[in-house]
Design a protein around this nucleic acid. Sequence first.
DNA 1: GATAGCGGATAGTGCCGCTATCTACTTAGG
DNA 2: CCTAAGTAGATAGCGGCACTATCCGCTATC
Lengths: 217, 217
Amino acid sequence: MRIGELSRKTGVPVPTIKYYVREGLLPPGELTSPNQAAYGEAHERRLQLIRALLEVGGMKVAEIADVLAAIDDPERPVHKVLGTAADRLGSGGIEHDDAGSAAARAVVADLISRRGWRTHESNPAATDLSEVLAALDRLGHGAFAEVLDDYADAAEQVARADLRYVDQRVAVEDMVEAVVVGTVLGEAVFSALRRLAHVSASAKLYGTDVPQEQKPS
Amino acid sequence: MRIGELSRKTGVPVPTIKYYVREGLLPPGELTSPNQAAYGEAHERRLQLIRALLEVGGMKVAEIADVLAAIDDPERPVHKVLGTAADRLGSGGIEHDDAGSAAARAVVADLISRRGWRTHESNPAATDLSEVLAALDRLGHGAFAEVLDDYADAAEQVARADLRYVDQRVAVEDMVEAVVVGTVLGEAVFSALRRLAHVSASAKLYGTDVPQEQKPS
DNA sequence: GATAGCGGATAGTGCCGCTATCTACTTAGG
DNA sequence: CCTAAGTAGATAGCGGCACTATCCGCTATC
């Protein structure tokens, strides 16, 4: 398969494919001549993965490069890949560093110990969580912490489902990819489900909300 | 309070505040002279909200403008604001429109009816969900649909918690803001919790995973 | 009356994900 | 064999976005 066919099959323009190769997201095709290269199914699959992480997962190209490098590295232990995949999420790294942050960190540490989670508050996810809680506090929504345990219950349930899904992969490389896909796309799945449940629940609570109306624009 | 103090209190640079005013995110200060204006606590609060939606929620400035306009409009019914806040999430609107999409839409419709959700599959969230499922299918992860119900259970639980939180607001404008904050920042909270639960669950499953290690960079 | 700050406006910057263009070459069709 | 379409690789440019820099004439304050 040459690049044009790869482009047609995936819907990704040829120059974009070349760009991904340049950026290290996609391995180059196997050269059959100085200016002819052959691409296989692996390239097609990889390209789909790239597009999914970009469009659905909202990841940046450089982040995807990191994650894919982790996937491709057979030396890298599974939990490192998970870390690489997961760490790209979160606030983006804005530091506020006020009094509220310390309080938020304490809330997170308490939550972790209360639930018996085998992690430490130095975990990037824990840091992100404290930052979000600090932001909520700043907004006068510190009371949001009251529903934290409901959120945590739900998060545990989702995490169990994720592990169940990943666990039934046979080969290790499939498992690694399943972790990445599950982490990133699973986020999008849950987000959509939450919004659906939101609409439905508020309809039940506040009476018969019309299902959908379009504004005249 | 003048703009410099507002800037100091919120950590947002003065030119950025002016930019937000230009873009309609922040109402202008009340003019006390042709070139002097006074800002109040409402401005400070609004600025915190903008930063939270931007940095934590990852929203775009134009989207924030829409949501804030919806919040400020007393005519707009609550569920419309919720819609405005929620619809900005999701894949970004890439259409693939192949056979897999139709199958994914069917899965979503089935899910909605199976769970008795009071919504329709024309809901943007439902569309987003089908698109994610279609992408998963394209990646050979169609089996992910098997854990959809676990995800949906968790989503319902989170939605209930959200409503409980919103419901205890007294004033309507507080409620509206609580919906926005809950929807957008709640997403970030859940995301972090999920990653924490992920690490913890995989530690319990795969033995004593080290909690955290830093790479030498 | 000097200095710092202000409101308002316009233009520019840096990053990011492509996209356009060019050259030299290869392949497929008639 | 010739031609038209396609290709690898390289460089430069584009459009969107969230700011950021600069300037002007004015004002508050010491």
